[in-house]
C-alpha cells in the first residue's frame, strides 16, 4: 500500500468520525442504545466479564 493511499484512508477516517461528532444529540442517544444492545449480546458469550449492575440497555421511549 502506498504512503499516499494510507494517508488518504487515515484522513477519510478522521473526516468520518468528525462528521459523526456533529450529528444531533438525540440521534447519538439512539446510537448509544444500539451499542448497548450489541454490548449486551456480546456479554452473553463472555459471562466471566463482570459488569456493574447498572450496565443495562436503557428502557426509554
Amino acid at each position: 500500500m502506498s504512503r499516499e493511499f494510507s494517508n488518504h484512508i487515515a484522513e477519510s477516517k478522521i473526516r468520518y468520525h468528525k462528521n459523526r461528532a456533529k450529528i444531533p444529540f438525540e440521534e447519538k442517544v439512539k446510537i448509544i442504545i444500539e451499542l448497548q444492545k450489541i454490548d449486551a449480546e456480546m456479554r452473553k458469550g463472555n459471562r466471566s466479564r463482570l459488569r456493574p449492575k447498572y450496565y443495562q440497555v436503557w428502557q426509554i421511549e
Binding site: 461528532a21 447519538k28 442517544v29 448509544i32 447498572y54
Partner: peptide
C-alpha cells in the same frame, strides 16, 4: 460520557 458525547462521536455508555 454523555456530556462528552454531546461534542464527539458517541460510543457505549450506561449512565
Amino acid at each position: 460520557g454523555l456530556g462528552q458525547f454531546y461534542y464527539i462521536e458517541p460510543s457505549v455508555t450506561y449512565d
